[in-house]
């Protein structure tokens, strides 16, 4: 009885889903699906030459690069993008001293709600404060950047690719060498938007934020200042934002190696222990 009812139910679901399949197949066969420029010409994030120091299981922070990235963030990004989950005290990871961090915090005005007056007052930041919110009045809604490299697929490379990806639409060709303007002659970037193949829909509200020479890098320990090209600044800020998204990343990887090494050791021991326990009773299996 159960089997009869079951068979009827099974055939019922099968019938309905195959009906849906038939309708879907008919639609697919009769209706042309419009190809979309947003799919055909979307570019996947790619790594800069040499990748990032933090990449891979043996990755390490490059403190000098993080400091440069912080500088780029402050000078190019901070006007529109907040960094709300990062506290000034966290900058110690980048190699800044307590005094430098205190000065850094004081350069920001932090809003405080005063319950006795009901007003929001601003005062100089303390190392314990987080980066303040940024008010933005304009087109689009600039996201907070603290977690941006975790909130996008292949985030570090995405930030780098996006920042270096402001190309001329007229000459842009995808990986297959097809020209966007030839394949989709009617494709247009919306009012106030900017062409960028790494952004969803190929158009982004943010204008190209970096120009060559926009920041002046301090000289490093070798006595040379890296040239502030768009590529260099993009790499640096992408590295910095990788750190803001997961400041504990290196702690994680370092701990991981110890744990994996120990677990491997214990597992090998467990394997020999298992063999030794079973040696008395384990015959050669003749079937399967």
């Amino acid at each position: 009885m159960i089997r009869l009812v079951g068979m009827l139910i099974g055939l019922g679901f099968t019938f309905v889903v195959l009906l849906a399949f038939g309708v879907g197949a008919y639609t697919a066969a009769t209706e042309e699906v419009e190809p979309q420029a947003g799919y055909a010409f979307h570019a996947e994030p790619h790594a800069p030459e040499g990748g990032f120091a933090s990449d891979g299981p043996f990755g390490r922070w490059d403190q000098a690069q993080l400091q440069r990235g912080y500088q780029v963030y402050k000078e190019a990004c901070a006007a529109c993008h907040s960094l709300g989950y990062v506290a000034f005290r966290n900058l110690a990871d980048l190699g800044y001293s307590d005094a430098q961090i205190k000065a850094e915090a004081e350069s920001y005005q932090i809003p405080h709600y005063d319950p006795s007056t009901g007003e929001v007052t601003r005062s100089a930041g303390l190392p314990t404060d987080n980066f303040p919110p940024v008010a933005y009045a304009g087109l689009g809604s600039p996201p907070d950047l603290s977690l941006i490299t975790k909130a996008r697929g292949d985030g570090t490379n995405y930030v780098y690719s996006l920042l270096t990806g402001y190309e001329d639409m007229a000459t842009y060709a995808n990986e297959d060498g097809e020209l966007l303007t030839e394949e989709f002659p009617e494709f247009q970037v919306g009012e106030g938007l900017h062409f960028n193949p790494y952004f969803e829909g190929l158009a982004i509200a943010m204008p190209a934020p970096l120009q060559d020479g926009q920041v002046t890098y301090a000289v490093d320990e070798n006595g040379v200042a890296p040239e502030a090209t768009v590529d260099q600044m993009s790499q640096d800020v992408a590295a910095f934002l990788t750190w803001t998204a997961e400041p504990k990343m290196m702690e994680r990887k370092r701990t991981g190696w110890w744990i994996l090494a120990f677990t491997l050791f214990a597992t090998i021991l467990a394997w020999f222990a298992k063999k030794s326990v079973w040696s008395a009773v384990k015959p050669k299996r003749e079937d399967d």
Binding site: F265, A266, L269, A270, F272, A273, S276, V277
Partner: peptide
């Protein structure tokens, strides 16, 4: 080996 395995665990 068994003592070692149990100790590791």
């Amino acid at each position: 080996i068994e003592i070692a395995a149990v100790s590791a665990a």
